[in-house]
Design a protein around this nucleic acid. Sequence first.
DNA 1: TTGTAGGCGTTATCAA
DNA 2: TTGATAACGCCTACAA
Lengths: 352, 352
Amino acid sequence: MKRTRNRVTSYDVARLAGVSQPTVSRAFTPGASITKDKRDRVLAAAKQLSYLPNSIARSLANARSNIVAVIVGDMHNPFYAESLQAFITRLQDSGRHVLAFTISDGRDCDDALMQALGYHVDGIVVTSAHLSSDLISTSQDAGIPIVLFNRRTADPALASVRCENEAGAATLARAMCNAGGREFLIIRGDPQGSTSRDRVNGFRSELEALGVAPGRVEEIDGQSSYAGSYDAVLSRFKDKVRPFPDAIFAVNDIMAIGCADALRGEFGLAIPDDIMLAGFDGVREATRAPYELTTIRQPIEVMVEKTLDLLERKQSGTLEDAGNSLVVTGELIAGKTVPAGTAAPGGDGDRS
Amino acid sequence: MKRTRNRVTSYDVARLAGVSQPTVSRAFTPGASITKDKRDRVLAAAKQLSYLPNSIARSLANARSNIVAVIVGDMHNPFYAESLQAFITRLQDSGRHVLAFTISDGRDCDDALMQALGYHVDGIVVTSAHLSSDLISTSQDAGIPIVLFNRRTADPALASVRCENEAGAATLARAMCNAGGREFLIIRGDPQGSTSRDRVNGFRSELEALGVAPGRVEEIDGQSSYAGSYDAVLSRFKDKVRPFPDAIFAVNDIMAIGCADALRGEFGLAIPDDIMLAGFDGVREATRAPYELTTIRQPIEVMVEKTLDLLERKQSGTLEDAGNSLVVTGELIAGKTVPAGTAAPGGDGDRS
DNA sequence: TTGTAGGCGTTATCAA
DNA sequence: TTGATAACGCCTACAA
């Protein structure tokens, strides 16, 4: 009744191969001391029984799960979908795996984190939302490292990997000024999120440094999503007599795309002729023909690699507390939504 | 020296709470026989030590991992990104979790599957590619159920959940005929994949039933991706004097979008005025303003639910072999890329 | 309701 | 190199 399931264990293989159980274990451990002869015999027996080492038991025995938890927010933002795929691919290639969590609407990040901790994963990657400092210290007690991806917090104990958001946004501000932008509109994302805040700040302060009066910079909330941005643009342009912006900075690409669709579809505006537009992230969608968005590309592959590095170093204790935060440089993608600037004011529009 | 890691176990909690270890276990098991008094004491102690039950150990003890492996292909196709998120959300809500695998370029599906089997997961969901029958029988021996999502195989032993691909494609064929389509172009996906094949077949046979000569139906390869479709359309229309199609059926939405972008951006064609277009999947992107694609929506939530149902029933042995394949009905989304049919002949609502 | 004893399948330790 | 034996942390009997 209990023995209904046909579980093949290392003991079965050992018996068939005429060796001891630990020898079976060694046969499956790269670089273990075992004669080729025995290893072959074991592997043959294993194959015959279609035996597969039980990763769960292994995890329990050596206190290493080879699992990394990745907590991801909205996968409708291609940046996160791409990032998740990058994590999966990279970990899979190194024999580890991703336990995926999501924080869809309302679900608490702490909740997901707690569950992840329960699996004694090797590390946790958080791509969104806020963590209670309670959980953070719990994870530290448990020796499970956490790294924020594309996020940061004031708490220096929390490692993070992110892009130079301020600098990137500043670059875009310069480009738009050069192209003749005078009245600006910012579409921000989650006001609580560090990423949106940093980009908005970077953009604003560069504008100020370039002599644009703060009164010429308006800000609306795009809720980090396509639909949010679309709607925000809709209601902003619907019956507003206010100064008409000639340059829009959406804090991420998905919102920039939503904005572009609204501007064109609802108001028949041309980009960049009537209004210029910039985004941030450099997702694939943004580079497509209908958009060719001017944006900053976040080097996802690099960021993922650095995130995993950081996790490992934190786990092995190589890392103390300095250098906890890695900041990578984004690359300006000169699309067609911001005309090439000719330093001189007045613009030119030369982009054959 | 080994004890450097501060692992809190149920024994520690038991000691602090003045109870036995199994009592701690019971305190964390909903519906176990334990007095409220003791449970409270245990939970208090647990909190004080920030103890978290070890899911790995639990899995080993009761031979149930509460983990479902999801093997996903290309996450650049929003259909799969959405599906993955749906799986994660739903499993997370029921206290289970997703171990995510990917089969990026060239990586073998069997490989991922093997690794999944090693974790003795409760079930495996496969959203793409082919499985060797070897692996399938291995998983059956191991008692780990596999369900194909949006795929099928000839092998009846393999359960699958999918949409009525033929019927959906047929509906689109009718709609396009009704709208005046005479020369057809099909953009297919992976010719090896059942999904693309079924849709192509459904489309073709309905056309034939409607009296369209096979010679009027052309087929090109869009490689299941935006870029593949874009390029295919590009080279098809570049210098082709062949009959100009007036109706295009892309086997999935992401390819339809690529096609639309190419038609408009490269050739200045209007949709549906110059050429009509239909897709399949009903992803969010396809419904957006620039596209408003006529397509068939696959009910992802329902499909996910049925997939998990199937997994559970297979695991508990409730399922023999009949009814292994669940087919759900897709919903026609009447977008703007196929003009409303002027009824006329063959305009019946239901499918005979 | 509670505690004791044994098992889940592996890796780690230490002799041989 | 190999084998016996003890963890790993929990759950499921079974007995009290």
